[in-house]
Amino acid sequence: MSRWLAGRAYLRLAAALFVVLLAVNIALNPVRFAPASLGVTIGLASGLILAAIASMPPILAGRGGIDISVGPLMGLVNVVVVRWLVEGLGIESPFLIVPLVLLLGLLSGALNGLLATVLRIQPIVATLGTSLFYAGITLTIVPSPAGTVPAWIKALAGPTSILPLAAVALLWLLIKRLPFYEQLLCVGSDDRAAYTAGIPVTLVRFLAYVLAGLIAAVGGLCLTGLIGSADPNIAGTYTLLAISAVALGGVSLAGGRGGLVAAVLGAADIFLLQTALTFFNVSTFVLQIVYGTVLTVAVVLNADRLRQLLRRRRHA
């Protein structure tokens, strides 16, 4: 364990924050964090956690890689599942809905990947384009909150809330053992050196976007379970929260450094902060101020530059 942590110093801040916030939350609201209600609590957080995991692969791939369409894609999945699949086609079986949702995620990821890596449009612009596109389609399909969902989707925010997270974690553990994962980190840490090592840089980056789309689609399904209907306005905020979570978790936005645990811890920190503050009935405006402050302080504390300065002062 200590060896595992030694190579991951970037996790320290998020982990410390997690322990503190968890203790605060348990003290404030023992019922919610009792083992019996753990399913519901995880269900509340799983959308954000999956959004954070989804935004990570393009960031790991480096050179400005980012996917800001994660939130809008989750919203699109939400309305497509509720309005088209459940209400329109009358499909309720998980064995049809899950593959279709995953397919939507793959297609969206491939579109982002095509724009950002093959056509080499600035990733932030490319995914801004697709996110506006998704947000627009979402509003066209369902202009205002409506609809209901099958029981098994609702259960994803309750008793079975661990399932989608476990599935994504398993997927990630598998990916970590593939050559792709090593290549992703190499491309992220130094794409020129990766290229001269014979790594197909564009393909690796493309797959990072595909992975992002796939995981975001799972997140969209969890979100659907949580809100229990189609809501076109809720998912958009997830993008920025997810990127905040990733940064808070210590993932380098320059690429090459990060992992599943970092994204999950970062997202859990934001979620715990949220629940602690809402316990005091803090206004949402103040909530925003706190998010902003925590994120800025965290990123500053994680900054390599600051560490270098501190180290230099210690030696001097």
């Binding site: 980190l185 840490s189 130094d190 020129r192 050196a193 990766a194 290229y195 090459g256 450094r257």
Partner: peptide, 8 residues
């Protein structure tokens, strides 16, 4: 710059 992967 194009040989070793610095951080790894």
């Amino acid at each position: 710059t194009t040989g070793v992967l610095g951080g790894l």
